[in-house]
Each structure stands twice: as structure tokens, then as C-alpha cells.
Design a protein around this nucleic acid. Structure first.
Length: 369
RNA sequence: GGGGAUAUGGCAGAGUGGACAAAUGCAUCAGACUGUAAAUCUGACGGCGCAAGCCUACGGUGGUUCGAAUCCAUCUAUCCCCA
């Protein structure tokens, strides 16, 4: 068994488990910093190790476009190329059907993307996606899924789960290595389609199951409801991954429903756009109230940045367009996420997850400086 | 001393008789961001008002005109060239 549940919270579906991959053992719930192109934006990859992360997600489609999966394979694989000793999960490119929808054409065979780099058109099939992920030396691969826009109508979602089923079968068949492969549940906000998609994935049987297509505008209540619905049908002895989720409160609520693995661009992208996460809620460093403030970003935080930098100085750097600000802020947000997921895990082990949730959210929502 | 040019909202800079409270950029202020085509995007940005609207404003003053940031006179300031 590559996944074992070690602790189960008695007041919720939250659990602590260990996930074994070819690059080591991961304790869940876990958060993966997003390294789409092989690096966390505005940071070096070793900054992640310094913060304490040992699990990242990269994107197969982006690395296929540049520098190329064959090139990376020749280099000795992605771990070697990045000099990353931790675990790597590769996303298949399915999300780009959503995010690059204006330059994507979906067919049963696969998805054609017009490259934003050189304009070339590439057909990404489930087989090619697996080949790319295997060439990269992924520890944990994802099937190619059809990720539609959240406001799509029922018929489009229905076709997406059917296509995802076909692509899942082909992905599994194409897999040549022993590395793990996760299925992805689609179905939008429609519970019956979610259930159908779960059945499809369970029939095929994967090493773990991801919930896809959430956090794309359906609203937080819907996100939690669908997460709960999906988790209730997933096997307890397999890891569950909520793709792209989420904001701090989303992670807590999803853990409560039984999710084990997360990734999200929010800590890094929002850092670059001026948002910092603190135990008292998120703040916008552009707000004039932080001008020349000698306070740390988070007075409850004991990280290096909070101990050594004032928010007034970081704001000055940000407003001046200094690159260092983006780096400091990304690092600070990732540290916050690391602390959050560590605290979640600790509270589950102590069977006090719901108390942790209450305490955390009260402070996170109300005090907002 | 002689000749020439220019003066516009926090800054830069369009506009040269009515569609001008005045383009655009920057700065400023606020918001958004969920498997990253994002160091991005959206909104506000003379005053008062919820609004219709009213008031003040394109260096000063005085004119021409139904109407002036735009035309004329004059004053002031700045810059350039020749002595």
C-alpha cells in the first residue's frame, strides 16, 4: 500500500496519512507549491526546501512546450534538472483546457493547443500526456481530463465526464512505468454527474483520486458541498487530491471533508499581486495604511521574514517595483501555507481538528487588522 | 541689448473656437485573483451631491465671440539663439 491513513479525526472526515512515492514519504494533509514551469514564480526551488516543502506540482504541458520532455529526459529527468530531491506530481495539461480555452480545441482523440510560445499546434492525447509525464520522471501522474468552464451547462459537463472516462482508460493503458497515476473526478456542480464520474474512475481503479473542476467560479459553498459529496463516495484507503484548492479557508474546509492533497497558485500569485496571508486574515500591501509601518507582516509569525523585515519596508519595495518584494512576499505566503497545513495535521493527530478550525477561522476572519 | 519659443489637472504630455472637467502614460487610492499565457486585471482619480446637476479650472488681467484651454492685447515667468 502506498497510502496509509494513520489518524482519523473523530468529529469530521479529516485524516492524517502517509503517502509513499518513489521520492520519499509524504505526510498528509499536504500542500504542494505550484511550480508550473519547474520553479515557484519569484523564488528559487531551494527556497521551498528551506520553508520545509517536500512535494511540488509541475505542469506537463508547459514543460512539453519548453524545454521539451525529451530534453528533460536526456538531462536525466526532472528531479535532476531542477535539482529537487522531494516528490514531484505532474499535472497532465487537462487544466489548460480551462485556462487556455481560447486556444484549445477538444476532440475525442485529445486536445489541440495553439502554443502561446510559437503559435504551433500540438495535439495532446492521453497517451502523449502520460509519455510526457513518464519522460519527466514524475512520481505521481495525473490522467488527462476534460476540465470545462464552471459555468458550462449540464450537457457540456456530461460530455466532459464521459470524455474524461475514455481518456482515463487510455491514460492507464498507456502507462509503462510503476509510478502512481491518479484519476480525476469531474462533474461540475451537478451531484449526479459527480457520482457518475466517481463510478467511472473507481471502475478503472487508480492509485488515488483527484477532484477536478472546483474553485473555478462556482462559489465557496458549492465547492465545499461538492467536495463533501465526492469524498463520501471515494474509498477511504486511497489519497484524495483537490486540484487547485485553495484559499486558506478552502483547505481547512476540504480537509474536514476528507481531502489529503492540495495545490494552489494563490500564495504565490497573490503575493506577486500584493496580497499577504496572515493569521489575522489577508492584507493588501498596497494599502496606504502600511506605508512606513514598522510592524512585521504577521506579529504571530516566527518566520525569518517576520523577524527581520518590516511591512513598511516590504511595501516600499513593492511600490517601487523591486523584484525582491515579490520574492519576500511569495516566501512569506508559502510559509503561511506551510504553517497552516502543519497545524492542520497536528490538530488531527491530537483529535482537535474542529477546535483548530474554529480558532483559526475566527482569528483569520474577524481581526483583519 | 536684439531675436525666437513656451506656460494645461500631483508629474509628464495631447488638445489649438462648441462634442472639454479636458486624451494618454506615470504616480496615487481601492478591489479582484483557487490543477499560473498573471510582477496581472478591474475601478476611482478638481470640489459638493445618492443622483440629475451645480461650482471652480488649461500662468495673471482685460478683450473679441452666442460660445475661449484654443483668437487678440497686455503683464508675469521659464527656456533657446545672437550680441
Amino acid at each position: 500500500m502506498s497510502f496509509v491513513v494513520k489518524y482519523k479525526d473523530s468529529n469530521s472526515n479529516a485524516r492524517v496519512g502517509t503517502l509513499r512515492t518513489s521520492s520519499g514519504e509524504i505526510e498528509t494533509p499536504v500542500f504542494m507549491p505550484v511550480c508550473t514551469g519547474g520553479v515557484p514564480k519569484a523564488l528559487s526551488i531551494d527556497a521551498l526546501s528551506s520553508i520545509g516543502f517536500n512535494f511540488i506540482v509541475v505542469n506537463a504541458y508547459h514543460l512539453f512546450l519548453r524545454p521539451g520532455h525529451e530534453e528533460i529526459k536526456d538531462f536525466g529527468g526532472l528531479h535532476s534538472f531542477l535539482n529537487w530531491k522531494g516528490t514531484i506530481l505532474t499535472d497532465s495539461g487537462g487544466f489548460q483546457i480551462f485556462s487556455l480555452s481560447s486556444s484549445a480545441t477538444i476532440e475525442d482523440e485529445g486536445v489541440s493547443f495553439k502554443s502561446f510560445i510559437d503559435g504551433s499546434t500540438n495535439l495532446i492525447t492521453p497517451e502523449l500526456s502520460i509519455k510526457i509525464q513518464e519522460s519527466l520522471g514524475s512520481d505521481l501522474m495525473m490522467i488527462l481530463d476534460d476540465c470545462p468552464k464552471s459555468d458550462s451547462e449540464y450537457s457540456r459537463i456530461l460530455s466532459s465526464i464521459e470524455r474524461t472516462r475514455q481518456w482515463a482508460l487510455r491514460s492507464k493503458k498507456a502507462k509503462k512505468t510503476k509510478n502512481q497515476l491518479f484519476g480525476i473526478v469531474q462533474g461540475g456542480i451537478y451531484k449526479d454527474l459527480r457520482k457518475l464520474s466517481i463510478d467511472h474512475m473507481l471502475d478503472i481503479d487508480f492509485d488515488g483520486y483527484a477532484i477536478g473542476g472546483l474553485g473555478l467560479g462556482e462559489g465557496q459553498d458549492a465547492t465545499y458541498e461538492i467536495t463533501d459529496h465526492v469524498c463520501s463516495f471515494l474509498p477511504v484507503d486511497k489519497p484524495r487530491y483537490s486540484m487547485g484548492i485553495g484559499k486558506p479557508e478552502d483547505i481547512i474546509n476540504s480537509v474536514e471533508k476528507g481531502v489529503d492533497i492540495f495545490d494552489c497558485v494563490v500564495p504565490t500569485r497573490n503575493a506577486r499581486n500584493g496580497t499577504l496571508y496572515t493569521s489575522n486574515g489577508k492584507i493588501n500591501i498596497k494599502n496606504s495604511m502600511y506605508s512606513m509601518s514598522d510592524e512585521p507582516i504577521d506579529s504571530h509569525c516566527d518566520c525569518y521574514i517576520c523577524k527581520n523585515y518590516s511591512i513598511g519596508y516590504i511595501r516600499y519595495l513593492y511600490m517601487s517595483g523591486e523584484i525582491a518584494a515579490l520574492s519576500l512576499m511569495s516566501s512569506s505566503n508559502l510559509y503561511f501555507y506551510k504553517q497552516l497545513i502543519d497545524s492542520i495535521r497536528k490538530s488531527i493527530k491530537g483529535d482537535s481538528f474542529m477546535d483548530f478550525k474554529k480558532t483559526f477561522l475566527e482569528r483569520y476572519r474577524d481581526e483583519k487588522n
